[in-house]
Design a protein around this nucleic acid. Structure first.
Length: 391
DNA sequence: GCGATCAGCT
DNA sequence: CACAGCTGATCGC
């Protein structure tokens, strides 16, 4: 659950993923993805009036996020203010001072965040340094290297601050199965079931509105069978063919269901295998593995749309920013504790979390130090990191 | 009769 | 199981 207030220290004139309170004064708005905890205030009358009364204030997001947004009547009003950006395509944005002051310019680049359909990160480059806002993300280790516009030539850009999805930045969640591992386990379960008879059905019980589409799409491709979803759910994907072509609202045409079960009138002779994708359950039960049998007809598979702690640390360690600001403070946790779990990866801090003394002429040397750490791979070098915690 | 908010649930 | 919702009750308009 995002606790980000909407504004960065470096660029307080823009708001990201938060649209209430002081954010009503911003000069531009950004949405990383269409989950409602990132849309607080977006449907309010205050926000609607703000857009209506401002000539230059726009709303930036990805194409898919736009379609998911405006398919919901609460947000259809945004249509005329939305400017969609394409991935890894730097765009210059002018922040107009409505009272004839001086305008500011900001270069914005979006990157796929791997959290849910349309989810992105934003890189802001301007006079106050480079700032990366990750939104929610799930990236495997090493993926930052393939995000070319985080680089300048062969070097990583100088990132002043990263505003980071720290949902699973905790020693309890060092490792999570990859998306592919989860998919393979799921395919095995489905494969062992649906070929027994046409009345053998699989029911996927998914909680969030968006996020499981990767599983739906890949399952559909593998079994050459569309996934049944509720009409209401399907309507959000009308303009997103990359997803909708793998879905159906006709329950009778498929053996794989992710629909609202009560509305799906199946014959009573059907035998149903229930599979529940879960993350927290696996974390709290400390069950290693990808799949767990609960009952003869009931399984859980471990699937996460947030990065594990080691994936987060790999990402931050690769970028080596000066500052890290957690977007999520887990319960019973403080911002300081979360930052301490990442501090050793920041620029100018050595492995023992001591500040490296600042010498202007030592710039090259410092550069070398961080390089060395990157090359060595900070992979399993986390000893002592969690010493100072109570739990 | 429509939102907004909140408890309870998954 | 604060991953991200949904449903249904209640209150105000």
């Amino acid at each position: 659950m995002s606790t980000f207030c909407g504004r960065t220290l470096e660029y307080p004139d823009i708001s990201i993923d938060r649209f209430d309170g002081p954010n009503l004064n911003s000069k531009a708005y950004f949405l990383s993805h269409a989950h409602t905890d990132h849309m607080v205030g977006l449907s309010s009358m205050l926000m609607q009036e703000k857009f209506k009364s401002s000539l230059h204030v726009k709303f930036y997001c990805s194409d898919v996020t736009k379609e998911l947004l405006i398919a919901n009547s609460k947000y259809t009003y945004l249509k005329e203010y939305i400017i969609t950006l394409s991935l890894e395509n730097p765009t210059s944005i002018t922040l107009k001072d409505e009272k004839q002051g001086k305008d500011d310019k900001l270069l914005v680049t979006m990157f796929a965040a791997g959290h849910c359909p349309g989810s992105v990160m934003f890189l802001f480059e301007g006079s106050h340094g480079n700032v990366l806002y990750t939104g929610d993300f799930r990236l495997a280790k090493g993926e930052a290297k393939r995000m070319h516009l985080l680089h300048s030539g062969s070097r990583v850009k100088d990132i002043k601050s990263i505003y980071l999805d720290t949902t699973f930045c905790s020693p309890d969640v060092m490792h999570l199965p990859s998306r592919v591992e989860c998919l393979q386990a799921l395919i095995e379960l489905v494969d062992g079931w649906i070929y027994q008879s046409p009345k053998h059905m699989v029911r996927l019980t998914c909680k969030a509105k968006y996020g499981y589409e990767y599983l739906f799409v890949e399952l559909s491709k593998h079994f050459n069978m569309q996934i049944h979803v509720s009409v209401n759910h399907f309507s959000y994907y009308n303009k997103v063919p990359d997803v909708s072509q793998y879905l159906t609202t006709e329950g009778k045409t498929t053996q794989i269901h992710a629909c609202k079960w009560e509305d799906c009138k199946l014959e009573e002779t059907a035998s149903v295998l229930v599979i529940q994708p879960s993350t927290m359950w696996f974390i709290y039960n400390a069950k290693p593995g990808v799949v767990k049998k609960l009952d003869t007809h009931k399984y859980r598979v471990c699937f996460s749309f947030h990065s594990s702690c080691s994936e987060i640390r790999d990402f931050v360690g690769y970028l080596c920013p000066e500052n890290v600001y957690p977007n999520v403070i887990p319960v019973g946790c403080s911002e300081e504790v979360v930052v301490n779990r990442l501090k050793d990866l920041l620029r100018g801090v050595n492995k023992k979390n001591k500040l490296v003394e600042y010498k202007p002429l030592g710039a090259l040397k410092k550069q070398k130090t961080t390089w060395g750490r990157r090359k060595l791979g900070l992979k399993e070098d986390i000893s002592g990191l969690f010493d100072d915690e109570d739990d």
